[in-house]
Structure formats: C-alpha cells, structure tokens
C-alpha cells in the first residue's frame, strides 16, 4: 500500500486539527480560570474536619467547592489565597453565597491539629471548611488531583516549610472538577467564574 507521503501528512494535520478543535469546544463559555472539565475525577475524600470528626465529600454536597492545599504555618501563599477566596465569597449575592464552600486542606497534619485549623480558617471567614487527615489520605487526595506536597528538613527550632500546590481546584455543584484557578488570578476574575457555577449558568 503506497500512499504518497504528502497525502499522509495532510491527513495527520487534519487529524491533529480535529483533536485540537475537539479539545477546545467542550466548553461554550470563556472562563477566566483554566477549564479542566473531563480531565480530573469527581471530588472524593476521606479526611478529618476542624472538629476532629471524619468527613467525606458528601458533607457539603450540592455546593460549588473551592479546594485548596496548604498549611497554617504557611508564610505567604496560603493566607493570600484564603483571603482572596473569602473576598470572592463575601461579595457574592446571597443567593449564590449559600451554594459556595471553600475547602482548606492542610497537608501538614503533624503540626496542624483540628483545633489549630479551626482557629485559622475562622480568622478568614465563615464559608471555609478546614480539613486534614492522616498523611496517607492526604497523599491519596493530592495524587487524585495530580498534585503533590513535600516537607523541608526542620531547623533547630523545629520549623519547616511545606511545598504544595498553589492552585485552587473548583468543583461544580455536582462534584465534577471544572476549573483550576491559578495563583495570579484576581478576585474579580475568580468571582465571575464562581458566580456562573453557583447560579447554574454553566
């Protein structure tokens, strides 16, 4: 079978174009955040909440969930992100606000007791759920969303930094992974996306 190479090349181009178009067209909306529809599995976890009780994703089913990994001793990215997200939620219309929940997952269970997480998240607002769990469960969750975290060697005072994802994973009211918010996005940009998801316009 001898198909001229030019015809084959053209075929490949058409094929890759089709793949590209298919990749772009699964959303009819221009999101400010990165659209991750279909790329990641539904929200699922087995963790411990800020009262020390075991919880799963069922706990706040039906809400748009903004999941973020961090630790309470985090010097920069965690407080900035939590502050940003709580501003996003605070300025939403009441109707939408009750359908949005921020999930702060501490990946530093050694230092972050449920009580410590509770004080930490309460400082930032009232629609934030603090979560943590055994390292194994946290590894499982981060692997599920294709991220990771690592611990630095502790200094003489026992302090150490934790490397973790800077992104916010947004799940819609059905628990499907929808958006990945990058750290550099502004409050207004995030709010626009969250409002659309919370009011069911997308």
């Amino acid at each position: 079978m001898n198909i001229p190479a030019t015809v084959q090349n053209r075929f490949i181009w058409v094929l890759s174009l089709m793949i590209l178009i298919a990749g772009c067209s699964n959303s009819d909306r221009n999101w400010n955040a990165k659209d991750i529809s279909g790329l990641m599995p539904e929200l699922e976890y087995e963790l411990i909440n800020a009262s020390g009780e075991p919880v799963t994703a069922e706990a706040n089913a039906g809400a748009v969930r903004l999941m973020f990994f961090g630790f309470t001793s985090c010097p920069d990215i965690c407080p900035t992100t939590l502050q940003k997200l709580s501003r996003v939620v605070k300025e939403l219309p009441d109707e939408a606000k009750k359908n949005v929940e921020i999930l702060f997952v501490s990946v530093d269970p050694k230092r972050d007791t449920p009580e410590r997480i509770k004080n930490y998240v309460e400082f930032f607002g009232d629609r934030i759920t603090g979560l943590t769990g055994p390292e194994k469960n946290l590894r499982q969750l981060s692997k599920r969303y294709r991220t990771t975290f690592g611990y630095e060697d502790p200094d003489e005072k026992g302090n150490y930094a934790v490397s973790h994802s800077g992104a916010v994973y947004v799940f819609d009211r059905q628990g499907r992974a929808r958006l990945l918010v990058r750290p550099e996005q502004s409050v207004d940009e995030i709010r626009e996306d969250i409002l659309a998801l919370a009011t069911g316009r997308a």
């Binding site: 990994f69 990771t148 690592g150 490397s163």
Partner: peptide, 12 residues
C-alpha cells in the same frame, strides 16, 4: 510550562 508551578514540585 507553568503546570509544575501550579501543581507543586516534588522538591523545592
């Protein structure tokens, strides 16, 4: 390739 930024690196 900022995906490694966004999703965290294996070590700093």
């Amino acid at each position: 390739y900022d995906v490694y930024e966004v999703c965290g690196r294996a070590w700093p």
